[in-house]
Design a protein around this nucleic acid. Structure first.
Length: 601
RNA sequence: GGCCCGGUAGCUCAGCUGGAUAGAGCAACAGCCUUCUAAGCUGUGGGUCGGGGGUUCGAAUCCCCCCCGGGUCACCA
């Protein structure tokens, strides 16, 4: 972008001034600090090595040459080795007039190439979604939006973990204590009903273990031999043997889970293009492993189990297939990766999974590579930290979780309460008001989570509910509502229209620009590079923090600079176009986070 | 113990491909609504950037050692 352009020009000038054989320098080109006069700064300290002159002299010499070459450059100043460049007001205004009407601004054109796969959510069906899942879903959904904005074709995948010992635990508890109750008979949300039995299982199981330990059994042995866990394992065996009764209950309870998840996903506003079930994919991968054995990459032990040796890579030996030929976690992940690759030839396979699985994905990548799949480096594990509660981590077994549905309910009602206290819902029809509360509540929740760098653990304190002031989603939503309200007023009061104003302003020159306005235009100017960087680093947080900066800048302007009361028509229209542009970028940027913005609030 | 990730204001977080006096928000305090939405704006206070070495004209940022927190090292997923 412009930084690169300035760097290229600087390099040209340096070799012209100080010698043709100077290597291409990678000088820092950055936005000028706020307190200092200028738009961009080139740091030329390292040029002194070639110029053999003081930093000030060198910078001034380069600056003089730049003035001749760069049309929009109005002036420059030098502080030590910092060459500060000031572009003309006209430079910034013409940029704004060019892009304000461009609905694709900031987004890259669609690439004609193979897709990027983004897998996220991937819930277990034995319990409802909690706050940790929310972080996962929001990250995955937002990442997919950001990649699309960068022009990539994206396929969003959800691999539901619908089989295994965990669901058998819920099934067993239901058989023992369920008395045939159903979501319909109890009025409980279906996935929550399943969760109730999971917790019930864990409760009785813990009691059994405790009793066994008191009777002198070792803890390890007790955990393994308690009657309930044995029974659950028995159910798993029956499931594997396709016992009709077991399968029927399994199907029934899983359907409950899907129904419940569907509701939660819809409320949260996330979606998928492909939903896979582990019961369909868990047998994949055996062939990949046995083929690897034939190739001599893997080794087999006496009991028939197959392993990969990663000690050369600084890791351990890892089991890939059990002696009895059954799959482990790694087997099926190898399988699904290979199947996905063969089917889609993705340019990237992104897995949104918590950081407790860093090791697993490290092994997965290295194993695939050793098996000759050179596309293994296309796998990227978007590893995110856990959401911690003030008194430690969330544990579904112990009931110390923040349930996803409960949290959303709470956010909605807090949004409603706050809005009513401010007296802002009074003129709205009831249904619109409900939509608004949802929009604000979700906006607060999503922004709260997405503004934090994914790889960091984050703290959530349920006692202090999520804020609506300051660096928050509602603050940005509010800014958008302000813009929209201002523009509506402009239309009715002055007959303002975006397209005619743009036309008329283009024919003028010398419209004055306040520093405050220039700051906003400069912020708008970097939106495309923020979108690009967010796509390259898989980081919604970059978008979130950018939108906050932009909104803050705009609010400052809004508070201090009159728009509709401005008598100079060109000046007024310029400010309105600035508002139009800001509103559009906020809306588009928030969409990348999966957050909607209201017309009023 | 090995490996991975964190440690920046009382709290939650930016900044980390080296650059100018380290930034926001919350909380605290003091102001601003007869004027485009006060979920806003302005100002004040608050920091040995975990500690110690090193590289450099210049280090929160890069390298080494140490301390603290989390994760992981299952024939669970």
């Amino acid at each position: 972008m412009i930084e690169q352009l300035l760097l290229d020009i600087t390099n040209r000038i340096v070799s012209r001034l100080y010698g043709e054989n100077i290597p291409v320098l990678n000088l820092p080109v950055e936005k000028t600090k706020k307190e200092i006069n200028g738009d961009y700064t080139v740091v030329i300290f390292s040029v002194t090595r070639y110029s053999h002159k003081a930093p000030e002299t060198t910078a001034a010499e380069i600056g003089n040459e730049m003035m001749k070459e760069i049309p929009g450059l109005a002036s420059f100043n030098v502080i030590k080795g910092f060459l500060n460049l000031c572009f003309s007001d006209n430079y910034w205004i013409s940029f704004m007039l060019k892009e304000a009407g461009n609905d694709q601004y900031g987004f890259a054109p669609q690439r004609q190439e193979d897709p990027v796969l983004v897998e996220y959510s991937s819930p277990n069906t034995n319990k409802p979604l909690h706050l940790g899942h929310i972080r996962n879903n929001l990250l995955g959904f937002s990442l997919a939006e950001i990649l699309k904005a960068n022009g990539y074709p994206v396929i969003r995948m959800n691999l539901v973990n619908d089989r295994g010992i965990h669901i058998c635990k819920s099934m067993l508890a239901y058989m023992k204590w369920g008395k045939g109750e159903t979501p319909e008979s109890t009025g409980i949300k279906p996935d929550h009903l399943i969760g109730k039995y999971y917790v019930l299982f864990e409760k009785h199981y813990r009691e059994e273990v405790k009793k066994l330990v008191e009777e002198g059994t070792s803890e390890e042995e007790a955990l393994r031999s308690a009657p309930l866990i044995r029974e659950a394992q028995d159910i798993l065996r029956k499931w594997e043997a396709r016992d009709p009764e077991t399968r029927a209950l399994w199907a029934l309870m899983n359907d409950w889970a899907y129904k419940g998840f569907e509701t939660t996903y819809t409320r949260l506003g996330v979606a998928f293009d492909i939903v896979q079930h582990e019961s369909d994919t868990y047998l994949l991968g055996k062939k990949v492993v046995t083929d690897g054995l034939e190739q001599g990459v893997l080794s087999q032990k006496d009991d028939g189990s197959i392993w990969i040796d990663l000690t050369q890579d600084g890791l351990d030996e890892k089991l890939l297939l059990r002696g009895d030929g059954t799959s482990v976690y790694m087997t099926q992940d190898l399988g699904t990766a290979v199947v996905r690759y063969d089917k889609f030839h993705p340019t990237k396979m992104i897995y949104v999974v918590g950081n407790e699985q860093n090791y697993h994905f490290d092994v997965l990548r290295r194993t695939l590579k050793k098996l000759g799949r050179d596309w293994s480096e296309r796998i990227y594990h978007l590893s995110y930290g856990m959401v911690e509660l003030p008194n430690g981590k969330m544990k579904s077994r112990e009931g110390t979780v923040v349930d996803a549905d409960d949290l959303m309910d709470e956010m909605f009602s807090t949004a409603e309460q706050t809005t009513r206290e401010l007296g802002k819902a009074n003129e709205l029809p009831a249904t619109d008001a409900q939509d608004l509360f949802r929009m604000i509540g979700l906006g607060a929740l999503k922004y709260f989570i997405l503004k934090v760098d994914p790889k960091k653990n984050m703290l959530f304190d349920p006692a202090e509910s999520i804020d609506f002031n300051g660096n928050t989603g509602p603050f940005i939503q509010y800014t958008h509502a302000r813009v929209r309200s201002l523009l509506k007023r402009a239309e009715t009061q002055t007959g303002f229209s975006e397209s005619t104003a743009l036309q008329e302003l283009k024919d003028q020159s010398g419209i004055p620009v306040l520093p405050l306005e220039k700051e906003i235009i400069k912020k708008l100017f970097i939106f495309p590079s923020i979108v690009k960087e967010a796509g390259e680093t898989f980081s919604p947080a970059l978008i979130a923090n950018y939108l906050f900066d932009l909104s803050k800048e705009y609010n400052q302007f809004y508070q201090e600079v009159p728009v509709l009361k401005e008598e100079n028509v060109s000046c007024r229209d310029m400010r309105l176009i600035l508002s139009v542009f800001t509103g559009k970028v906020i809306k588009k940027g928030m969409r990348l986070l999966g957050i909607d913005v209201p017309e009023r609030m």
